[in-house]
Design a protein around this nucleic acid. Structure first.
Lengths: 201, 201
DNA sequence: GTGTTATCGTACCGATCGGTTCGATCTCTG
DNA sequence: CAGAGATCGAACCGATCGGTACGATAACAC
C-alpha cells in the first residue's frame, strides 16, 4: 500500500508492526472481524502472511493489538476534545458529545469499533478490551462530574456513560433518530443541572 | 431435541418452521451469527439440512426470520410490562426500565440480539430489522411521553431510546457499571420531570 | 566477506464453511 | 391401495478458512 514494507531489515520491526495495525484497522472495522480473512488483511497491508504471524501470532492476536491501539487513540481524542473546551465542566461535557456528533457524521461510521468487536467475539480478549475501554470513558466523565460539583458524581458519570454508548448505537442503527449525539448532549446537561448540589443561595 | 420433528408430513410445515426458529434462536444469540455453522444449527433443531433450506432458503434467510420473530416477541413483552404498571405514564416508564433490569440479570444475557446481529452483519437484512426494531421501541416510548404531558414528546422519547440502548450495551460490556438499567431509569425519570410542560400552579 | 535478521511470494495443510443432491422412510389424502 | 409431500441421513461439492513451510532476497552488524 502507501508505504510498502521493504524487503530487508531496513526498518525497525516495531515500525512494521505499527504499519500493519494502521493498515488493518479500517478493514476490520468496515467488514467486521469475521468478514475478512487473513489473506485479505495481508493484501491490505502489503505484507506477507509470515510477517503478520511472526508479529501477532494469530488473527486473534492481531485483533487484540488493533483494539488496544484503537482504544488508546480514541480515549486520547475524546479527552483532548474535552480539554479544548476550556475549564468549565459543563462546557467540557458538551464538547464530549459534540465530538461524538462529528464522529457519527463521518462517512463509514459504523458504531464503536471496540464495542462492536466485543459483540462479535463475546469472550477474550475482546470483552476485556471493551471493559477497560468503557472504564477509561467513565474515568473522564467522572472527573468532569466531580469538578461540576455533582452531589453523586459516580452515579452521574455512569448515566453519562450510558448516554454516550446509547447515542453511538442509535446513531449507527436507527436512521429514524438523526443527531442522536445532540439529543444525548441535551439530556446529559439536563441531568447535570438536576444533580448539582443545591448550594445555599 | 425436545420434540423431534416426525418423519412424515404429520405436522403443518408452518409448525416445523416455527420449531426451527425456536430451537435456533438461542444458539445464534449465544454463539453469534458467524460463530455457528448450518450443520450445528440443524443438530440443535433435530432437523436435516434439506428441511432447513426448504423452509428458509439460506442461512441468511433463517437469520432474518429469527430476528423478525424475536423483534416482535420482545416488543410485545416490553409493551406488556409497561401496561402492567397501570395508567400513570411515569410508572410505565419506570416499568420499562425495570423490565430491562430483569432481562439484563438473566443468565446468558449478551446484549440485544437484534442490535448485536446488525453489528455483526452490517447490511441487509439485519440493519433493516434493527431499524424497525428501534422504531417500535421509539413508538412505545413516544406514547408514554405524550401521555406524560411532555413539552416535546418526540425529543424526550428519543432520549429515552438512547438510555434504553445504552444501558443494554453497558450492562453487557461494562462489569464496572452494575445495575445499568436502574441508573438509566433514574435518568429517564429526571428527564421526564424536567420536560413536563410548566403548568400554571 | 560472513552471518543474522526480516521480509516476500507461493505453495500447501487439514478443517470447516454454506449449500446441493439422492434414496429411503414415513404419513396424510383420496 | 396409490400418490403426494415432508422429512431424514449421509454423501458430496467447490470455496474459503486460519495457519505453516520453504527457498529466495535484501539490508544490516561485525
Amino acid at each position: 500500500m502507501g508505504v510498502p514494507v521493504p524487503k530487508g531489515s531496513t526498518l525497525d520491526p516495531a515500525r512494521t508492526r505499527a504499519a500493519i495495525i494502521q493498515a488493518v484497522t479500517p478493514v476490520l472495522y468496515e467488514r467486521g472481524l469475521d468478514g475478512v480473512g487473513v489473506a485479505e488483511l495481508c493484501a491490505a497491508t502489503g505484507v506477507s502472511k509470515e510477517t503478520l504471524y511472526r508479529h501477532f501470532g494469530s488473527k486473534e492476536g492481531l485483533i487484540e493489538a488493533v483494539l488496544r491501539e484503537r482504544s488508546e487513540r480514541v480515549t486520547r481524542w475524546l479527552r483532548a476534545a474535552a480539554e479544548a473546551a476550556g475549564p468549565d465542566p459543563a462546557d467540557q461535557l458538551a464538547a464530549v458529545f459534540d465530538a461524538l456528533a462529528s464522529w457519527h457524521a463521518e462517512p463509514g461510521f459504523r458504531g464503536c469499533a471496540i464495542v462492536n468487536a466485543a459483540t462479535q467475539h463475546h469472550g477474550d480478549p475482546e470483552m476485556g478490551v471493551a471493559a477497560s475501554h468503557l472504564d477509561r470513558r467513565l474515568a473522564l466523565l467522572t472527573e468532569i462530574a466531580i469538578r461540576a460539583g455533582a452531589a453523586d458524581p459516580e452515579t452521574l458519570a455512569r448515566q453519562w456513560l450510558i448516554l454516550v454508548s446509547g447515542c453511538t448505537t442509535v446513531a449507527d442503527q436507527h436512521p429514524g433518530t438523526p443527531h442522536a449525539a445532540r439529543l444525548a448532549r441535551q439530556a446529559a446537561l439536563t441531568l447535570l443541572q438536576a444533580a448539582r448540589v443545591p448550594s445555599a443561595p
